[in-house]
Amino acid sequence: MITTQHFLVLSAILFTTGVIGVLVKRNPIVIFMCIELMLNAANLSFVALGRHFGQVNGQMYVIFALAVAAAEVSIGLGIIVAIFRAKETINIDEMNLMKF
């Protein structure tokens, strides 16, 4: 029998994989993918808890998170393309313009 806890633990594992990816990777596109993975893990726990309580609220939050994720990806990839045009590289270690 699968309980809500199973889904919460799986969501935690996926989220942590995304966190490690954000910390380890040097390619901003892969970092974006890891952020998408973290968003998916959070969505999964939303839906699991909504199912647990028998309410539709969790799925509503997932719909809005999807819209925000789509907007974020379009803007973020646009920024990456613009940076690549200006600096001919997208290595995250060389993007220190806003570093204090």
Binding site: Q5, L8, V9, S11, A12, I13, F15, T16, T17, V19, I20, L23, V24, S45
Partner: peptide
């Protein structure tokens, strides 16, 4: 990367404990 993996695993343990 080594620091990230160590900190990530401790983060995972915290999350899994709180989730389970």
């Amino acid at each position: 990367p080594a620091f990230a993996v160590v900190l990530g695993i401790s983060f995972a343990v915290t999350l899994v404990m709180s989730g389970s």
